[in-house]
């Protein structure tokens, strides 16, 4: 199965973790950041998982969930729906531009930091007394959230002092980081280098947007 992506695209982490867990051999095809793989899309949105020849999943969450479902049986699909939707509709439209500013341009704005802290606190509270976001086992919700937050919580550009501020989140983050599938994914996407390798892809990829009719209120 082919996974098309540009170099250092942090959204591929969740797909690679899922493939490692489900034992699906992925052939990673590196393309240039501005190369269009999914022909009907107007942007060069990557990564794209080619499930069958010419049949693509251009949603990284849908691809990760597809791969995990090849080996897991979902016990609470509605809870997973809600976490994956929260990640794509609420979290990523804040985290992505934050990383573009931080890693791409070397500075972040106050309102971005406020939003990030707000969401980390929410996640920390959700993890109080728990090992995972849905039930007590690792699910695609953990994979998706861990992967999208990886550059925020790990490496050279990680948020100063978050470990002491969000203890449950810290335990969860390091627990997953030490599992083989997660370690392997980081190795594949980052090699032995730091999160600065994400820069080119962050600057090239389209920025995820929030839904309009609630958008303005969300970006105070």
């Amino acid at each position: 199965m082919k996974l098309y992506t540009d170099h250092g695209n942090f959204q591929t982490l969740k797909i690679i973790v899922a493939s490692e867990i489900s034992g699906v051999k992925l052939e990673i095809v590196h393309t240039k950041s501005d190369e269009k793989v999914v022909t009907y899309l107007s942007s060069c949105k990557l990564p794209a998982l080619e499930v069958h020849p010419e049949k693509f999943l251009f949603s990284a969450n849908a691809a990760a969930r597809y791969l995990t479902n090849l080996s897991w049986k979902e016990t609470d699909p509605s809870a997973l729906d809600q976490w994956l939707e929260w990640e794509s509709a609420v979290l990523l439209p804040i985290v992505f531009p934050y990383l573009v500013s931080l890693i791409g341009q070397g500075k972040t704005e106050e309102h971005q930091l406020t939003c990030i802290h707000g969401y980390l606190e929410h996640l920390d509270t959700e993890l109080n007394g728990r090992q995972a976001f849905c039930g007590d086992q690792v699910t695609v919700a953990d994979i998706v959230l861990w992967s999208s937050l990886y550059p925020v919580l790990n490496g050279k550009f990680c948020l100063k002092g978050w470990e002491s501020q969000y203890k449950h989140l810290q335990a969860w983050n390091s627990h997953l980081a030490n599992l083989q599938p997660f370690k392997a994914a980081v190795k594949i996407v980052l090699g032995d280098r730091d999160t600065s390798v994400l820069k080119a892809s962050l600057l090239a990829q389209p920025v995820p947007q929030r839904a309009k009719d609630v958008g303005q209120a969300g970006q105070q």
Binding site: L57, S59, N61, R65, D213
Partner: peptide, 18 residues
């Protein structure tokens, strides 16, 4: 199911964000 999920996400992240 993953293709349906993808296009449901497309409704929220692409269409509703216009």
């Amino acid at each position: 199911q993953s293709a349906v999920d993808q296009w449901l996400e497309y409704r929220v992240s692409q269409l509703d964000s216009c």
